[in-house]
């Protein structure tokens, strides 16, 4: 058992290395003097200074973070409640609903973008944050739903029954018993939603307006002129900030042990 654990730890470490290798390159190039981001020339900090002059870029990061947060919040509610309801109750055409929920995962982004754009025109929804969030939730919530369903499968019915016997309503049982039980899946789903939304390019192009440019749109627009290291610099700042945030939250939690019943939200 112990040996197995060591092997698993080594495997995990190797996988982390794989995941972080390109990130190391990305961070390295944020200090490169060449503006073409391809060949190493020399060390500089000028790209970090350039972030503060680049109001458009910072604004697009703000937009992206806002959209990803709202998208994640809605996706988590929709996906978790949906998974539970489809699990708990017999709806006519349950399998049809299930299949339909998977469709946005499969439809190529460009088709989804164009068809949503046309749909928004039909319903007279002006393009902007709302249209972007709607389209993002549509492809994000299935990820939450699938993760939660995987957790629900094989759930001990006694768990919920017990809660019901304690006099709780189904909704109360859901909140007090199931949500804590589902929390690992909810967190996984939330992380996936946030990540997908943050980095989505094509659907966003079709559903965004001039005032709601996101970071991926901004970055893609710059490919033609060469992805300059400012983009690496802003990525570096962002992930370092996140990493520090996560680690401090974790440390604080460990210090206050029992107080921390709330898992960190992305």
């Amino acid at each position: 058992m112990k040996r197995v654990n060591t092997m698993l730890a080594a495997w995990t470490a190797a996988t982390m290395l794989f995941l972080y290798l390109p990130i190391a390159i990305l961070i390295g190039f944020s200090f490169n003097t060449s503006r073409l981001n391809i060949v190493w020339q020399g060390f500089t900090l000028e790209w970090y200074a350039a972030i503060w002059r680049d109001a458009v870029l910072v604004k697009s990061l703000e937009n992206s973070l806002y959209i990803a947060s709202v998208t994640t919040a809605i996706s988590v509610v929709l996906g978790t409640a949906g998974a539970w309801l489809l699990y708990r109750y017999r709806f006519p055409g349950a399998r049809m609903w299930q299949t339909l929920i998977f469709v946005p995962m499969l439809v190529p982004e460009v088709i989804m973008g164009v068809s949503l754009l046309i749909f928004f025109v039909v319903i007279h929804l002006e393009l902007g944050f709302t249209s972007i969030v709607i389209s993002h939730v549509t492809f994000c919530f299935p990820f939450v739903l699938v993760a939660v369903q995987a957790r629900l499968a094989g759930l001990d019915p006694a768990l919920e029954e017990a809660a019901m016997d304690l006099g709780a309503t189904p909704v109360g049982a859901f909140r007090r018993v199931l949500v804590p039980y589902l929390m690992p899946a909810i967190i996984s789903g939330a992380l996936m939603s946030f990540t997908l939304s943050l980095d989505e390019l094509i659907v966003t192009y079709f559903t965004a307006s001039a005032g709601t440019r996101t970071l991926p749109l901004e970055i893609f627009g710059r490919v033609k002129k060469g992805l300059d290291p400012t983009l690496n610099a802003i990525s570096t700042v962002f992930i370092l900030f996140t990493a520090v945030l996560v680690v401090t939250t974790e440390l604080l939690k460990r210090r206050g042990t029992s107080l921390a019943s709330e898992p960190p939200q992305p």
Partner: peptide
């Protein structure tokens, strides 16, 4: 969450 959604 609901507030955030409404805000959006």
């Amino acid at each position: 969450i609901v507030l955030a959604a409404a805000l959006a």
